[in-house]
Amino acid sequence: MKYKIEMIYKIKGNKPVEFSSEWLDAETAIRIGEDLEKTGKVLQFLFLDEMNHSWSMKEMRKLTAEIEEEPHDLTLYFDGGFNKNTYEAGIGAIIYYKKGKKKYRLRANQLIEQMETNNESEYAALFFALDLLEDLGVHHLPCKIKGDSQGVIKQLEGEWPCYEENLNKWLDRIEEKLERLGLKAKYELLPRNENKEADKLATQALEGKLIHSTMELNE
Rank of each mutant, 00 (worst) to 15 (best):
residue 7 M to S: 05
residue 169 K to I: 14
residue 69 E to W: 06
residue 219 E to Y: 10
residue 42 V to Q: 03
residue 24 L to P: 08
residue 219 E to M: 06
residue 77 Y to D: 04
residue 177 K to N: 00
residue 65 A to D: 14
residue 181 L to S: 06
residue 114 Q to E: 15
residue 99 K to E: 10
residue 11 I to D: 13
residue 23 W to H: 04
residue 168 N to V: 06
residue 145 I to W: 04
residue 114 Q to A: 13
residue 92 G to H: 09
residue 26 A to R: 00
residue 171 L to K: 15
residue 5 I to P: 05
residue 53 H to L: 00
residue 42 V to F: 06
residue 176 E to A: 09
residue 195 N to S: 13
residue 96 Y to G: 00
residue 197 E to H: 10
residue 60 M to K: 00
residue 88 E to V: 00
residue 37 E to R: 12
residue 126 L to Q: 07
residue 96 Y to M: 11
residue 210 L to S: 03
residue 146 K to F: 04
residue 144 K to P: 01
residue 89 A to Y: 01
residue 202 A to D: 09
residue 160 W to G: 00
residue 47 F to P: 01
residue 117 T to P: 10
residue 70 E to Q: 14
residue 213 S to C: 04
residue 110 Q to T: 04
residue 190 L to I: 10
residue 90 G to Y: 04
residue 10 K to F: 12
residue 126 L to S: 07
residue 58 K to E: 13
residue 170 W to Y: 15
residue 21 S to T: 13
residue 47 F to E: 02
residue 50 E to S: 10
residue 104 Y to T: 07
residue 59 E to M: 04
residue 26 A to G: 14
residue 178 L to Y: 01
residue 207 E to W: 07
residue 92 G to V: 08
residue 108 A to I: 01
residue 82 F to A: 02
residue 174 I to L: 04
residue 1 M to D: 02
residue 155 Q to K: 02
residue 32 I to K: 10
residue 152 V to T: 02
residue 48 L to I: 05
residue 51 M to N: 03
residue 10 K to A: 09
residue 64 T to R: 06
residue 140 H to R: 09
residue 127 F to S: 11
residue 1 M to N: 01
residue 126 L to K: 06
residue 50 E to T: 03
residue 82 F to C: 01
residue 103 K to L: 10
residue 24 L to E: 09
residue 179 E to L: 13
residue 206 L to E: 08
residue 105 R to E: 15
residue 64 T to S: 10
residue 186 K to Y: 15
residue 218 N to W: 14
residue 66 E to H: 12
residue 214 T to W: 11
residue 160 W to I: 03
residue 118 N to G: 08
residue 161 P to R: 07
residue 9 Y to K: 02
residue 43 L to S: 08
residue 179 E to G: 13
residue 126 L to F: 13
residue 120 E to H: 01
residue 118 N to K: 07
residue 18 E to H: 14
residue 20 S to Y: 00
residue 109 N to M: 05
residue 25 D to Q: 05
residue 101 K to F: 09
residue 44 Q to R: 13
residue 29 A to G: 05
residue 60 M to R: 00
residue 127 F to L: 15
residue 55 W to V: 02
residue 193 N to Y: 15
residue 193 N to S: 14
residue 63 L to Y: 08
residue 11 I to T: 13
residue 29 A to T: 05
residue 196 K to N: 14
residue 215 M to Y: 11
residue 110 Q to H: 09
residue 30 I to V: 06
residue 203 T to F: 13
residue 95 I to E: 08
residue 130 L to V: 04
residue 138 V to H: 03
residue 29 A to E: 05
residue 85 N to K: 13
residue 100 G to N: 06
residue 81 G to Y: 01
residue 46 L to M: 10
residue 175 E to L: 11
residue 122 E to A: 05
residue 166 N to S: 09
residue 64 T to E: 15
residue 92 G to F: 08
residue 80 G to V: 02
residue 79 D to R: 03
residue 31 R to Q: 11
residue 153 I to V: 13
residue 13 G to P: 05
residue 32 I to V: 15
residue 197 E to G: 09
residue 152 V to W: 02
residue 69 E to I: 07
residue 128 F to D: 05
residue 20 S to W: 00
residue 125 A to I: 06
residue 202 A to M: 09
residue 56 S to K: 02
residue 208 G to E: 04
residue 65 A to N: 11
residue 79 D to S: 08
residue 131 D to W: 07
residue 151 G to Q: 12
residue 134 E to Q: 12
residue 51 M to S: 03
residue 55 W to D: 02
residue 211 I to P: 00
residue 64 T to D: 10
